[in-house]
């Protein structure tokens, strides 16, 4: 019972606590690979603390939507972090919702962010918002289909159940359809998290920005919440990827040593995929805006293939 109460808190703490670190880690690696020293791996934490202590500047054009958005975004991501198996495959709150709820909670966050981008009346925000919606719309079918592939392999859309079943039944993982689904999901992840080649998180140059464009007007606490939410989103997507397709090591029960091992392995796995992201970012240039649908179309085709092969193999 205690475990049932502790685990969710632990989960939140892991996600909330480590998400800036992942960002810092990626930045650091990337800098090193570009032969720069780069900022400290903890730089994102410094930024957040600084921002949280600041007052905010709010545009006079904007409305209450602008002020509500950071909270809505942050909270919806927080709810997601309770629904995703992070350390243990048994998520106590798994009756609350499944992967579809997670996708739509992401949508909730995005909905408000894009609204805010229009709220200030600046053209940059609208541009960012419009592109964000485009990318996410294009990514949606591929995401759903790749998740459906997994769900149909184990007959569940509940992440906790999926992880559990795959953990106990690892043979299922050796399935070409799951591999295809993994590829599709990876592409979607890059698009959703706003990484190169879809979006460039480092730039504030109006022609290239998508995600950052929407956040231009935020400041102080608001910016902190939004930034934090976006890094949590990245981590959550990575977690889903890792724990669905590579569930090994995740704790089956709620024992303390199991959780420790799980945590260690989790760090390793996340680190590995973060590294992969860096590799991808290093080796690709940012795509032109209207090439992005092609990329996501590829992901969609992959996921369709995944579904077909799943049915045919069965």
């Amino acid at each position: 019972m205690t475990a049932k109460i502790i685990l969710p808190i632990l989960q939140i703490l892991v996600i909330v606590g480590f998400s800036p670190l992942v960002k810092g880690f990626i930045n650091k690696i990337e800098a090193r690979l570009q032969c720069r020293r780069g900022a400290s791996i903890f730089q994102p934490y410094y930024n957040l603390i600084k921002l949280l202590r600041k007052d905010a500047v709010v545009s006079e054009t904007s409305s209450w939507i602008f002020r509500a958005t950071p909270y809505v975004t942050f909270i919806s991501i927080l709810i997601i972090s309770l629904l995703v198996p992070v350390l243990s495959s048994q998520v106590p709150l798994n009756f609350t919702g499944d992967i579809i709820l997670i996708i739509y909670l992401f949508a909730l966050a995005r909905f408000f962010l894009v609204l805010t981008s229009l709220d200030t009346g600046s053209a940059f925000g609208g541009m960012g918002g419009s592109r964000e919606m485009m990318v996410s719309s294009m990514a949606e079918p591929a995401m759903i289909l790749s998740i459906f592939t997994v769900a149909l392999t184990v007959n569940s859309t509940n992440l906790s159940n999926i992880t559990n079943l795959l953990l106990n039944n690892s043979v299922l993982l050796l399935n070409p359809s799951l591999f295809l689904a993994f590829l599709a999901f990876a592409i979607v992840l890059i698009a959703e998290a706003g990484r190169i080649p879809v979006d460039n998180p480092f730039t504030h140059l109006e022609l290239t920005m998508i995600h950052e464009g929407m956040m231009l007007e935020f400041s102080g606490r608001y910016l902190a919440l939004v930034e934090w939410a976006s890094s949590m989103k990245l981590l959550l997507l990575l977690t889903i990827l890792v724990n669905i397709f590579f569930p090994w090591g995740i704790a089956g029960g709620l024992t303390f040593p199991g959780l420790i091992i799980a945590f260690a392995l989790y760090v390793v796995k996340i680190g590995f995929f973060a590294f992969l992201i860096v590799i991808v970012e290093m080796s690709f240039a940012k795509l032109r805006l209207f090439r992005i649908p092609n990329l996501l179309g590829t992901a969609f085709i992959l996921s369709v293939l995944a579904i077909i092969s799943l049915y045919v193999v069965r």
Partner: peptide, 29 residues
């Protein structure tokens, strides 16, 4: 299943559409 993908795409487009409808008509100047 493909219909499922269509529903997903539709859902995303609906969000875009109504972000636009609300955002453009109610927000900004």
């Amino acid at each position: 299943i493909i219909c499922g993908a269509v529903v997903a795409l539709t859902g995303a487009l609906v969000a875009t559409c109504f972000v636009k409808a609300f955002g453009i008509s109610f927000l900004a100047l």
